[in-house]
């Protein structure tokens, strides 16, 4: 860890223009970790955990989550657990109870990849040191992405919550350093790596996530999250699927699915949902729709199995939600 200045703010007005090496810290479960590894070496940390960015509210439009609410608080909130199960389920299958008590919603959406080359400063990594190379493409890449990869980077976005929020078409409220506020759909928030894997999202310097807005699913909609991993707890996803299902009798009125563990960002699969809409929810239709899940995927030496596993994950998630098992 390198020396740094530490300041704490209690109101948004206190936020000035950031220096080039300024980093915000909320729960600290990513930043402190990466500073100890010297993967992140900010010269200034601005603690935002005392900002008034809390609150979990539901109104006619949907759910509003303060960016500083913890993962545990959101997961346990009756409005979330009752009407937005996919959010609760994704959170409760993330990290550990201790981490969920510290980590915030805003921080969760900004957590960095678990790619072991990114986290080892002695390895090359285009995300950490642009232009240094990507040993992951030929190295240990079982946990890495098959969708949205580039010749520069195949790192997976590790957030479970982001997958759930993408399928629900959540919006982020962002506040710039000048006090200007804008709303960005989460589906447009993350960037694919291309040749600039160091740029992960559309946040401007000093811009802060203040709130997450989740539209209320149509009446009768079921949502759920399936996470596939080697061990039963405390591990990032091999694959995951966040699904939304609204049935009209025995036919699908609307299905949506986003997947995790396979993409360089949370990956929406509109073609899979579209293939189910208007059809009966049965095994044949599910498998046909799921067969589109890995369209465009690129296999790497250790992770080619994810092409099949993600299709199976999608089938499993819809089968559970639709009561087929």
């Amino acid at each position: 860890m390198r020396p740094f200045r530490f300041t704490a703010v209690t109101s948004l007005d206190q936020l000035g223009p950031p220096g080039p090496q300024t980093s915000f810290i909320a729960g600290g479960t990513t930043v402190v970790d990466l500073m100890k590894l010297e993967v992140m070496t900010p010269d200034e940390l601005v603690a935002i955990d005392q900002l008034p960015l809390r609150g979990i509210r539901e109104d006619a439009g949907g759910l509003r989550l303060g960016a500083l609410e913890t993962m545990s608080a959101v997961a346990a909130h009756p409005a979330v657990a009752g009407g937005y199960q996919v959010i609760s389920e994704s959170l409760l299958q993330s990290a550990s109870a201790q981490l969920r008590n510290m980590a915030t919603i805003g921080g969760n959406l900004l957590q960095r990849t678990r790619c072991s080359y990114f986290r080892d400063v002695h390895s090359a990594c285009n995300k950490r040191v642009p232009g240094s190379g990507c040993p992951a493409i030929t190295g240990e890449n079982r946990m890495l992405a098959i969708l949205g990869t580039s010749a520069s980077c195949i790192a997976t976005n590790p957030s479970d919550l982001a997958v759930a929020l993408v399928v629900l078409d959540a919006q982020l409220r962002l506040r710039g350093t000048g006090g200007g506020v804008r709303t960005v759909p989460l589906r447009d928030f993350y960037l694919e790596p291309g040749d600039r894997p160091d740029r992960e999202n559309v946040l401007q310097p000093g811009e802060l996530i203040t709130e997450v807005l989740v539209p209320r699913p149509a009446a009768g909609t079921k949502t759920g999250y399936v996470k596939v991993r080697d061990r039963a707890s405390y591990e990032f996803a091999l694959t995951s699927a966040a699904v939304v299902l609204n049935m009209d009798g025995d036919r699908v009125r609307k299905a949506e699915v986003a997947v995790g563990g396979v993409g360089t960002k949370p990956w929406l699969l509109p073609q899979v949902g579209a293939a189910l809409n208007g059809r009966a929810l049965d095994r044949t239709n599910l498998e046909a729709a799921a067969s589109l899940a890995a369209n465009g995927a690129k296999r790497y030496p250790d992770n080619g199995f994810k092409v099949e596993l993600i299709q199976r994950t999608v089938v499993r998630a819809f089968s559970r939600l639709g009561g087929l098992v």
Binding site: R114, S116, S123, P135, G139, E140, R231, A232, S233
Partner: peptide, 25 residues
């Protein structure tokens, strides 16, 4: 333990990626 064939580094030398059973397992 994932031994990187290029460098000889263990790529998962931490308790996040070297998986031991949790209580849930």
């Amino acid at each position: 333990s994932l031994l990187e064939t290029g460098s000889g580094r263990f790529a998962n030398a931490n308790m996040s990626e070297y998986l031991v059973a949790t209580n849930a397992d």
